[in-house]
Design a protein around this nucleic acid. Structure first.
Lengths: 189, 189
DNA sequence: CCATGAATCCTAGCATCGCTAGATATTCGA
DNA sequence: TCGAATATCTAGCGATGCTAGGATTCATGG
């Protein structure tokens, strides 16, 4: 039985190698540059090996995305007052997106058929949304805190994607965050 | 000289045919289903004809996007009070995105190398942003109205893309708009 | 009215893509 | 040490965006 265990261990290592390599490659050259051939070359295996681990390229992207959900959930910022918590959460979110653009795309832009807000939604994703909810809920007033969170998440997501696509100047995010905080808390940051 | 004029006219007609067909095809089957072969078959010309009109597939998408900018700018809503104008603008924007998902993607999601907020930015795009700015500026208070507009545009864009990707339930947009209006104007819609 | 030159368009092909079938090499148990 | 099962690779399929070069059409000058 030990043989099989070793093999499963080796498979798991290679599985992780594929995900890590895909992420590194995407982060350095963008998802468009990720082809199964280049990826297989990087991990020093042939193409079909990828398909013994994943159903297809989309599944690899999804695996990278899931890593991202876990990391985003883990990037919990230190919380002081309610307002400080909101400011910290916003900066954490935007910094995460800026530091890991390809990862962010895998999570929130690509693969529009991920199971979100469903029974099969990945736990780390629920955790990440839950953290944002916890921080924003105190500011919701008499409005539904879940919908309230969705709206402000949309704002942050819009800021990230519009800035990344060059639709709004990439440089002015601080000013926008200031307005965001003002709008949320009623006072400047 | 008349011959050349007729030819230019025919070229313009075919140019418009390509853009219109690409848009229809994208709207009915999604941009992923748009290939140069399928597109050329639809217009009943061979593939290379496309390249005599456009530098490549991206340029065709960009041409479709530019149509969208013009239409969005033309979809100016009737304005009453400042608040009514804001509510109308939000609904106009979201309705536009919902009615023309592929067009919206061409405008704001695909082709991240479009010239936005630059000297070469298409005039209809500036017009569309300017209209949004005119509506939102009265609510900006002491904050920069341009940045203020960018933030709320980001919110709407986030609502559109997250809902389209299934990240937030597609059904609850009305509730989110209500919160959006409340947050902007201080009173429920 | 015809031949010539240019403009126009299409056939055929290239490199690359995601993915897969069948052959080959490797490894383990008896 | 040998046979069987497992693991991996080579080779290839259909489809992609895009392009070169030949064929066809067409206006024009004699």
């Amino acid at each position: 039985m030990s043989v099989q265990q070793r093999r499963e261990r080796e498979r798991a290592v290679r599985h992780e190698l594929i995900v890590r390599t895909a992420r590194e490659l995407a982060e350095s050259e963008g998802w468009d540059a990720i082809t199964t051939r280049r990826l297989s070359e990087r991990i020093e295996y042939s193409q079909p090996v990828l398909y013994s681990h994943f159903a297809g390229k989309d599944a690899i992207v999804a695996a990278v995305a899931e890593q991202g959900f876990a990391e985003l959930a883990a990037a919990r910022a230190a919380a002081g007052t309610a307002k400080e918590a909101v400011v910290a959460a916003i900066h954490t979110y935007l910094a995460f997106a800026e530091a890991n653009p390809a990862l962010y795309d895998a999570m929130f832009v690509l693969g529009t058929d991920l199971p979100f807000a469903q029974a099969t939604t990945p736990a780390p994703l629920l955790a990440a949304f839950g953290q944002l909810h916890d921080v924003l809920a105190p500011l919701a007033g008499d409005r539904d805190s879940g919908v309230f969170t969705e709206v402000w998440w949309s704002t942050m997501h819009g800021l990230v994607t519009l800035a990344r696509g060059g639709r709004i100047p990439a440089g002015g995010q601080e000013q926008r965050v200031a307005i965001l905080v003002y709008q949320l808390t009623g006072t400047p940051p």
